[in-house]
Design a protein around this nucleic acid. Sequence first.
DNA 1: AAGTAGATTGCCT
DNA 2: GGCAATCTACTTT
Length: 219
Amino acid sequence: MTVAPDRTPLDRTFFDRPVLEVAPDLLGRTLVRHTPRGPIEVRLTEVEAYAGPVDPGSHAYRGRTERNAVMFGPPGHAYVYFTYGMWHCLNLVCGPEDFASGVLLRAGEVVKGVESARANRPTAKNDHELAKGPARLATALDIDRRLNGTDVCAGGTAPLGVLTGTPAPAARILHGPRTGVAGVGGDGTLHPWRFWIDGDRSVSPYRPHAPRRRGTARR
DNA sequence: AAGTAGATTGCCT
DNA sequence: GGCAATCTACTTT
């Protein structure tokens, strides 16, 4: 009996749970993906939960639209959106179906295919910045809207790849307010729905929500 | 070394 | 119009 690392892909039942259960359970797991430049694997170190209709920070808060339709579908699928005119962000839809919740993958450590990831993200100053930030993670992994709606529980045929491995120890997981999100809970405080692995160098810096300065009426 | 203004496009009200 | 993540160039410490 050899002790091999568990490479079994996470299945639908993993994602078909409340998003606040799934989000911390993804930390420490590995996204295994095959890109045109070769295999790339990222160990997740930072995620955020978005709780559908009850969450003002969620794309799904104001109901279903063409863009967010995937979030209203079955769990275990990728919701990839385009932002700021040049970046993509990757979310994984959670349960129950139609609740439109998901986990935004915010950062990770590239544990395989560093050279391929570097080719995808030539501006990264060092290896732990390759996937430090949600759009950086998507760029490093060559993920764009072509993968929107694809199934990450489809095993070897999953175009985005699969998630494998074991979770980070609970004692190493911290949580706090989400980055750049204004949404508040019923008591007026920020939802502590950002989860990360304590001390990991690939975790992106916390940035409080900052309303944009008025652009037009500047003297 | 550390902070920030300004640029970029698509989505929704 | 307001919002979203990142990079570059510039400023300040």
